[in-house]
Design a binder for these strands. Structure first.
Lengths: 225, 225
DNA sequence: CCAAAAGTGTTGGTTTTACACCCATGG
DNA sequence: CCATGGGTGTAAAACCAACACTTTTGG
């Protein structure tokens, strides 16, 4: 083992998705300091000695972007030797899908957080492009196999909104009737005695039966990735 | 950040499964030193400063158990603050499924490697019981959704052997005809012009078309977990 | 009365499951 | 000739994919 102390540092990064203006967006910060000064990167930073990994991800996210009180799930550890020019830094990445109306922290002299469309990402710092690619695959899996969708929708929503969410994330259109059949069989949502009002025919509102994150039963729809 | 250097260390652990005597077994070492002296634990240890995570897992596995040249896939990062009484140690766990005839290193004064049946595990050091529980779930997924099975079987095998493998790992029996249909549709294996010989009717031998690890197409059988 | 979005079932094809008998070998 | 494991097909059920029209509202 010799004297390996201090030569390896551990960081966390958060890949946070939302939907805004009918687009899947990603929360990024623009780096104000080297390395990769001026480039975009995932929010994240070094863990504290007595802080759990997920707690560090929450803290960094809050410090750098203002986003807090969200559900994070671990994506994986990224540990290539030269992934960070500052030295040996291993990063544990976390994934989230959150409501699009979270207020972002105004830009500081250290960072500027913003939502960028997943289809127009700039060049990213470190190995963050690879992390994001993994996160997208994982998101496709999670949206179908877990209740992750409940994290992004308002407490009351219409089935059309829900379908729209799936379509945006999976990148394909779905049949309205089949989608509704599927959702009802999953037994995820519950009708409310409320309807939207607006220009058109009112839509019935629903809510999630379970608001926490959990694995759905076997044999979901699934056309993974 | 202050002076966090040296206060967090990074380790790797390997959850290595095999099948011996019709049982799913796990490669464990008996700890000869504190903490958890005398208890069983996953093989693993601290990473070196200029060593990739997976390389560290390979090295530790080889040093502690003699097992080498195997395929490892990342399971996840375990980082609870008090998971190791020696201080703040984060571990990245790896998963493998390997042939059961690997020669284990003889016991040294630091460790003694052995295969233990998954159904009779002793109390384990650290949070290794939780890591193993996660690894088992993941193994169920991987065996169905990837070519991981190719890592454990000999280069030539019978379909009955293959089925037996799936049954042991998934913990349920499968129908012989349906299993063969499924395997043939996956297009994973190739008939060889060879047959076993022995007491009974010879069985045709097969080999994997692809010997490397890869994701199978969407819509595999799948009854996850 | 028009435009826009909400809502609702059926059918055909595919996939999955359940199920039983004959075959080849060595002893 | 017996015991053991190898090998094969079919039919019913479940599941999935494709598809179009009517309803309600506001303007």
């Amino acid at each position: 083992m010799a004297d390996a102390r201090g030569t390896v540092r551990v960081a966390v990064d958060a890949v946070v998705f939302t939907i805004q203006q009918d687009q899947l967006k990603l929360l990024l910060i623009q780096r104000k300091n080297p390395p990769f000064q001026g480039m975009y990167a995932l929010p994240g930073g070094f863990i504290h000695p007595a802080e759990a990994l997920e707690a560090a991800a929450h803290r960094e996210l809050s410090e750098e972007t203002g986003v807090k009180d969200i559900f994070l799930t671990q994506l994986g550890a990224y540990g290539a030797v030269k992934r960070d020019p500052r030295g040996r830094i291993i990063s544990i990445a976390y994934l989230a899908l959150i409501k699009g109306d979270q207020r972002l922290k105004p830009a500081t002299d250290a960072s500027a957080a913003q939502w960028l469309s997943i289809h127009q990402l700039p060049t990213l710092a470190f190995d963050h492009a690879a992390i994001i690619a993994d996160a997208l695959k994982r998101l496709h899996y999670e949206i179908q196999m877990t209740t992750l969708a409940s994290q992004i929708l308002p407490s009351k929503f219409t089935l059309t909104q829900l379908q729209h969410l799936y379509e945006l994330i999976l990148g394909r259109n779905m049949d309205k009737r089949n989608f509704r059949k599927w959702i009802k069989e999953l037994d995820l949502v519950q009708e409310l005695p409320e309807w939207t009002s607006g220009k058109h025919r009112p839509a019935q509102l629903y809510r999630f039966k379970i608001s926490s994150y959990q694995q759905l039963g076997d044999r979901v729809n699934l056309q993974l990735i």
